[in-house]
Design a protein around this nucleic acid. Structure first.
Lengths: 350, 350
DNA sequence: CTTAGCACTCGCCGATAGAGAGTGCTAACA
DNA sequence: TGTTAGCACTCTCTATCGGCGAGTGCTAAG
């Protein structure tokens, strides 16, 4: 991205116009249209020359000799990195987002689902929210509940305001007194730990504890290591239909490709996670078509951002749409929503 | 359905052939094709006469003058009700189903999800499983867990082997001792009740209890009535993509219609629930295209069946596909899977 | 460097024609 | 009376053709 040479002012002007026009009309844009749109004091012929240059450098593309131009992935990239102006959401939209996010939904998962629905609705595209992975949630309280002689419920409340319960089947029954002892032990030692550190912390504590407490630690370890692997952050998607209303999906095979990509949510999740990690300092992730190097992603783009609890990144949210999407507006939407959700979650946790 | 007059033997023979051929080829079937397929000792002309009759009675249909015939919804209905022979699953398939269903998944929801995936995979269509509604699950054990001074987790284990937890935010803190007393009280009174009867049972008990126990009942009622409304049975769908591989979805608008129908899962759920209730004695539900009288269902069919825990119906599962589906095989698949799941759930609960 | 002019390319649209599949009807036959 | 052969007819599908329009690239002049 930083490797692209800079374009001249006029080239930028015209590339921007190509992107803007194509985004709104979904049709290849010609030199005349640009002159009209910009009210330029130049002739179409001049614009044509510039566009030919842009095409040579790979920023725009013709579908066939002598049609107008459409932006390439590289063109969009240049636009997003350097030309795009920052859109602002309307006060009504902000209010709507804040309202939905801070609604006292029955649990945190429902908040995610509703936020996702909201993203889809405001963007008219597909909304996406990754719920916090359970692994890195901090244990607020942990409690064993004896359900049947040899079955134990493990209840974990975390600092995201969630509560989760899992069933463990034991070889031998555990007495009520023992459950009680285990509960005190667990709640002495575990709160404040991330869920994924629980096991290792117990193992470590074996070194320092003796007698009764050591026995309890061992027993707790037995039980907790039977828990199924922590659910990785769940992906909510909403508004898939809206995506396919777009004219680029007049073709059935494209729909199928994208649909099957979206059905394998873990692929999407892995993709975004790795890109966000690589992205480093820059919070906002914009992935354009084939940049993703994923089968089925060729025709779509993604705008996503992590959200936080306190200072810690715990999940991400965003919008999926056709490559031809209003990046500026989507960026504003995703940014604001992530901020709003972060604020809300931080308040709950604190 | 019982209102259709009976067809002659020859008409039935030919209707069956039309259905079978069309199901496998997806192309309108002509008189010649039928003669060949059945190895009939009749000429195509005779078959044509019969088909003209079938068309007059509304069982088959021509797309245009002089194309072959395809079955109408009524034709499929007659086929399903009277002509279809019972398919058998192969031993391998049965084994596969039993294996997936009885797998010790981490929780009951996961069992549902996996069963759904299996249905999609075996049928090459869209699999559907409705998880047991929480309302009618029987409480096995109920436990309050103090999470924060004014927040309480309510943990409910039910006889389907599920464990569920919800958060309640209180006006005033509850002491540990009080939580303890409440727990004893709840587990004296509630196990064995359906979840949806819990509240009314507590209300009723107010009449008969006094002093301390009455106070506890009141307090418990305060807390439990703050629980969010019980989650209605969740709908799992899997394999949507496979549905759209079918040639009837060459057309984009059809894909959109069906997709948006499927996105509103509650519509699907309500539809099936009401039909199964109406169906009364007959366990198996087959819904063909416009029979459903739902926008977006015109081009698809559904084969579904309830499954049970013990004698009680708790949910349903099935398969969604193009109207042109192998009803016989799908019926066998859905039937066997529902039986297998019922057996498994009953065993767990018992 | 810019522009007017012009020939050229290509997708889109409608018309036309031929092939193929399958029908309905009629008349002859068992 | 039920069945069949024959035949004309209908309708879809595909390919081909030509004209229109939008837009380009190139050239030569300003």
């Amino acid at each position: 991205m930083e490797s692209c040479p800079t374009l001249s002012e006029r080239e930028e002007l015209i590339l921007r116009a190509v992107v803007h026009t194509y985004v709104t009309t979904a049709e290849a844009v010609g030199s005349r249209a640009i002159v009209k749109r910009l009210g330029l004091d130049l002739s179409p012929a001049t614009v044509r020359n510039v566009m030919a240059d842009l095409e040579d450098s790979g920023y725009v593309q013709q579908l066939h000799t002598s049609s107008g131009r459409i932006p390439t992935d590289l063109g969009y990239r240049y636009y997003v990195d350097r030309l795009m102006d920052v859109a602002e959401l309307s006060p009504t939209e902000r209010e709507r987002i804040d309202h939905a996010v801070t609604q006292p939904w029955e649990d945190a998962d429902e908040t995610m689902r509703q936020t996702c629905h909201l993203l889809a609705d405001v963007s008219h595209q597909t909304g996406m929210v990754e719920a916090p992975a359970e692994g890195n949630a901090e244990v607020l309280r942990i409690e064993l509940v004896s359900v049947a002689p040899n079955r134990l419920g493990v209840v974990i409340a975390d600092t995201y305001g969630r509560i989760r319960s899992l069933m463990v089947v034991l070889d031998a029954p555990v007495s009520a007194a023992e459950v009680h002892r285990l509960n005190s032990f667990l709640n002495d030692h575990l709160p404040g730990l991330a869920f994924e550190e629980v096991i290792s912390s117990l193992v470590a504590s074996l070194e320092t504890l003796f007698d009764e407490r050591r026995r309890l630690a061992e027993r707790a370890l037995d039980i907790l290591s039977m828990l199924p692997s922590q659910r990785v952050g769940h992906m909510f998607l909403d508004g898939t239909t809206q995506l396919f209303e777009q004219p680029e999906f007049r073709d059935v095979v494209r729909i199928r490709e994208v649909l099957s990509f979206l059905e394998e949510r873990h692929r999407l999740a892995t993709l975004i996670r790795s890109r966000l990690r690589d992205g480093g300092s820059s919070q906002m992730l914009v992935l354009i078509g084939s940049e993703a190097q994923e089968q089925g992603f060729e025709e779509i783009s993604l705008v996503a951002r992590p959200y936080r609890v306190g200072a810690k990144i715990v999940g991400m949210l965003g919008v999926l749409g056709p490559r031809r999407m209003p990046y500026s507006r989507m960026t504003a939407l995703v940014d604001y929503t992530a901020e709003s959700l972060s604020r809300h979650l931080t308040r709950i946790a604190g």
